[in-house]
Amino acid sequence: MMKFTAAHEWLVIDGDVAKVGITKFAAEQLGDIVFVELPEEGTVLEEGAEAAVIESVKAASEVYAPAAGTVLEVNAKLDENPSLVNDDPQCDGWFFRLKLDDPAVCNSLMDEGEYLEFIKKV
């Protein structure tokens, strides 16, 4: 199931591993993305730590770790084709897979309906 954060990230949780990306809403706000700086595999992230940087035509924006964990894998396709984040932000444009220290923290995240309500107020 897909979960959402107030920082406009999504997580697809499978056991103790979360695949993480940015939401369609966030990608639209950022505009054309020209480079994504991803974390190294094996990086240990605290919740809220800077995990990636998105360079759009306009500006650089940070992506923060939605939960504490260890980076297992990054989406290597983004190096050649960062526009995947614009084209398909909630699937092929994923950023990294994170082994969660405590999968239970995801229970407090928003589901899709809640997130769609949330962005109406942004």
Binding site: G31, D32, V34, V57, K58, N86
Partner: peptide, 10 residues
């Protein structure tokens, strides 16, 4: 407008 629907690169 910073951009229209097509986006800055386009």
């Amino acid at each position: 407008p910073i951009q229209y629907a097509g986006g800055i690169i386009s």
